[in-house]
């Protein structure tokens, strides 16, 4: 029974006391390159003011999660928060991990010290979580300042954004362990842009024909958007549990694959 359990628990979670040094390394790098992180905060804000405010002027009100009418801007803002959590995590976990693994040999260097593969997986994933939380928190401050957070439950959107970052970060990192060259990264946007545009981000699901509505449920970003939207409007029902389960499942699966793959790739 115990051995079975040990197999089910993702490898990285078992032994990763040194993950903090992997994290520390990223802090050291970005202490100088903080501008890169900081400037990433603006992208969702630009979208908020453009699509949410500018284009939203034509639309007025739409049907919100609870069924009542809400302003289009307030409707779009949580979706942009979810999308930027996804984009940030995917970006960090694919591009940077690949670079560190294949070119800079950062992980080879780490592994010649007491640090092990689980430390690396946990360290990198938690780094992308913290980064995501930073983005989410700053976006929330702007949203709240503009009065688009309708409920105190909206504060929960920050941890929710971290969960989204975890889900996408882990899966992104898992994918990057399969990538052979930079060319393969073109597939990343081929996946993320359609997710960004079609996951009921910019309009309620009801504008789709029923078949497409069903299809959208396969989009992990859809679950992210719905989760954050429900929280910012303070509308709760059982579907939230489903959204959260999907994201946790993604994250766990990704983490497990990452642990296995890094073992194969780095410890030959």
């Amino acid at each position: 029974m115990t051995t079975l359990l040990m197999r089910v628990i993702p490898l990285p979670l078992r032994s990763a006391q040194r993950a903090k040094y992997v994290f520390e390394r990223n802090v050291m790098v970005y202490r100088r390159g903080w501008m890169v992180i900081f400037s990433g905060i603006f992208e969702p804000l630009f979208y908020l003011f453009s699509i949410g405010v500018g284009l939203g002027g034509y639309i007025g009100d739409v049907t919100g999660p609870g069924g009542e009418l809400v302003s289009y801007t307030a409707f779009v803002a949580p979706a942009l928060l979810a999308s930027s959590a996804m984009n940030g995590a995917v970006f960090e976990s694919t591009m940077n991990i690949f670079f560190k693994m294949k070119y800079q040999k950062t992980y080879d260097a780490m592994l010649s010290t007491p640090i092990g593969v689980p430390d690396i997986a946990v360290g990198e994933i938690s780094w992308s979580l913290v980064r995501g939380a930073l983005y989410a928190a700053s976006f929330m401050i702007v949203m709240a300042g503009l009065g688009y957070v309708e409920s105190w439950w909206g504060l929960l959107a920050v941890p929710a954004a971290v969960l989204i970052g975890f889900a996408f970060g882990a899966v992104g990192m898992a994918c990057s362990t399969f990538m052979r060259s930079w060319q393969d990264f073109d597939y990343v946007t081929v996946v993320t842009l359609p997710l960004f545009l079609f996951s009921a981000t910019f309009y309620p699901l009801s504008v789709y024909p029923p078949v497409v509505q069903q299809l959208t449920r396969f989009s992990p970003l859809y679950h992210s958007v719905e989760l954050i939207r429900a929280l910012t409007f303070g509308v709760f029902d059982w579907s939230l549990v489903g959204h959260i389960a999907v994201l946790i499942g993604m994250g766990a699966l990704g983490t497990m694959v990452v642990g296995r793959r890094l073992h194969r790739l780095l410890l030959t």
């Binding site: 284009l55 034509y58 639309i59 545009l197 079609f198 910019f202 309009y203 504008v207």
Partner: peptide, 10 residues
């Protein structure tokens, strides 16, 4: 996404 679906709302 924007032209057709969001456009229908507009």
């Amino acid at each position: 996404a924007m032209g057709m679906f969001l456009g229908s709302l507009v």
